[in-house]
Write a protein that binds this DNA or RNA. Structure first.
Lengths: 345, 345
DNA sequence: TTGAAAGCGCTAACAG
DNA sequence: CTGTTAGCGCTTTCAA
């Protein structure tokens, strides 16, 4: 093993002081030309690289951004991260990612480990468990420590910081309207329990769209899924419930699912029951992911523009990082758009 | 903003020396009971948390593991990370993830930023570009610095370290045999260019299976895809090529694709040509991902057991971290298994 | 133009 | 039982 060379060693070897070496390596005008060349040559030869830990201990700056997301399998999060990475790279920041696995405890641990020393700022999408507990102490404490946090997608109004979201209500409205404009009248909503903010908001959008189109709300047409983790077992559960409602309400002619897993499940149940898509039932999902693209029929979806979200979040963060004076907190809303595919006509 | 309290401040406030405070907080038996209680109470009151940067500067230990993967959208990588996370958590390690985006340069930068200070060891799946360039200086240099690296899935024999792989040749053989046992004789292989080690090995497995079953190899039945990134455009390209071969060779009755994107593309082309799956053509993919599960027909696949790979990699890493004496490098091979679904009968 | 010294927050050997 | 001191690698002020 070849230990990394330090300033001290260079200094000793070349008979300069540590500070001279340090300055020479930073090309400080204080240092004489030959000292500089000699030191720089030696450093290059031995492949000197400053020890970042020591640097952060001094500067409290790491030029890296931490991202905490609930899980990796969602295409949406992948997209967001691509957006973050692109922007960060342009600005000379590095990105590291941590997973909360939808767990409150893991989220707390992740923040703790990242916060001291590893990162300058954080971009977070809250875990379901955190949303359920409504405990944001770890977030607020971090902000208090002057580590900027940007929340995206899964946010809470009980945290004061910059946020990037899509207009979930509007997106859900668009989706529902899309089905209504296709002549659908009896639209099944597959959503999450209310504590998941996005589920909640999308439900609101659905209800608003119905109201605006003078369609009476039938609460039997709303399936609220308790989704802590999307395990094989739970998937099966969801399908069961969709199946039941489908049996109960034979006049259903549209389905709006608040994510693509639910939408895909709906597709599956529909096909199993030999119901023609989109002729008999039109289906629309939320989140433009791999499943939607590759499903058969391919799924019409509300595209969340994950990459834009990531870019915006990263931009807000870096702005805040460069402005120690207090800019007021902002909430940016990213437009959604409908990606029309085979599952709706 | 509320700055984090330090040992120094506690010491001053309570009129002890810094080292006494340090020891008291670690419950050292050296320290008197009342000093201890007083200090601990004060620390708790002011929510003292040790500064990890300072700690790593001393110990050169961070208790965190870095993972570098080429991209996030692959379900396989997500699975591996789940495996890593689970095992790491059990052992008291934290995990941070970085993306290379299949880029050599990004991989180098990621390693550099992680290596100093952020992590104790690294688990990496090499980027395609790195594999193409065959430049492993950054990896070898890191190992030289005594930062253990475990390579998984996308590895190279030019790097000496622990590795975790599946038996790609064997897996591909299983897949091909699966089709042959279904009575297929003319099997199309959709694979990558040879520099991607996994593609290469799977091609070998395919060829071996044919040989063992006395089926003559027809190189026209092999499509090698140049896949740097799986963009929308490239996907289209792949479909085109499959389509051409299908036209050219009308007797094709089986398709083996070395990943699920290719398999899904094959499905799509087949359906477009009104070819019945699995009656006329059986299809099998590699990697048990979301697409395979949700496609129609659902895809039979070779399951790579990503979670097991992750667990094994993490185990090897932590073992090495705890054993400064040199254990010889190992290469662990994880079993594959066929997950039978609708696309093959 | 160069260097000594202090300090970032913490640990640990050693002294008292 | 408690404190002094040196040191991890680096930057920066101040003095020479």
């Amino acid at each position: 093993m070849k230990k990394r060379i330090t300033l001290k060693q260079i200094a000793k070897e070349l008979n300069y002081s540590i500070s001279t070496v340090s300055k020479a390596l930073k090309n400080s005008p204080e240092i004489g030309i030959d000292a500089k060349t000699k030191i720089q040559a030696y450093a290059k030869l031995y492949n000197y690289k400053p020890n970042n830990v020591a640097l952060s201990l001094k500067n409290r700056k790491t030029k890296t951004i931490g991202v905490i997301i609930p899980e990796m399998v969602h295409y949406f999060f992948a997209k967001v991260i691509i957006g973050i990475e692109k922007f960060a790279k342009k600005k000379g920041y590095n990105v590291i990612i941590s997973l909360s696995n939808e767990s409150f405890e893991k989220e707390v641990i992740n923040i703790e480990t990242l916060v001291d020393g590893q990162i300058d700022g954080l971009i977070i999408s809250l875990s379901k468990e955190t949303l359920l507990k409504q405990d944001f102490y770890h977030i607020n404490e971090t902000i208090d420590l002057d580590i900027p946090i940007i929340l995206f997608d899964r946010i809470s109004s009980n945290v004061y910081c910059d946020k990037v979201i899509i207009d979930d209500v509007e997106g859900a409205k668009k989706a529902t309207n899309h089905l209504i404009q296709n002549g659908r009248k009896s639209i099944l909503l597959i959503t999450t329990e209310d504590y998941v903010s996005v589920g909640n908001l999308r439900t609101t959008g659905y209800i608003q769209a119905l109201k605006e189109n003078n369609i009476e709300l039938d609460t039997d047409l709303i399936i609220k899924v308790e989704d802590k983790k999307s395990t094989e077992e739970e998937l099966h559960n969801i399908e069961e419930r969709i199946n039941e409602v489908l049996k109960l309400k034979s006049n259903i002619d549209g389905i709006f699912a608040v994510n693509e897993i639910y939408a895909a499940s709906a597709l599956k149940v529909l096909k199993k029951n030999n119901i023609k898509i989109p002729e008999e039932v039109g289906v629309i999902g939320f989140t433009d992911g791999v499943i939607s693209r590759f499903s058969d029929p391919s799924l019409t979806t509300v595209d969340q523009n994950g990459e834009k979200i990531g870019k915006q979040a990263c931009k807000l963060l870096i702005e805040r990082l460069n402005n120690t004076n207090n800019i007021p907190y902002q909430t940016k809303i990213i437009e959604t758009s409908i990606t029309s595919r085979e599952s709706s006509k």
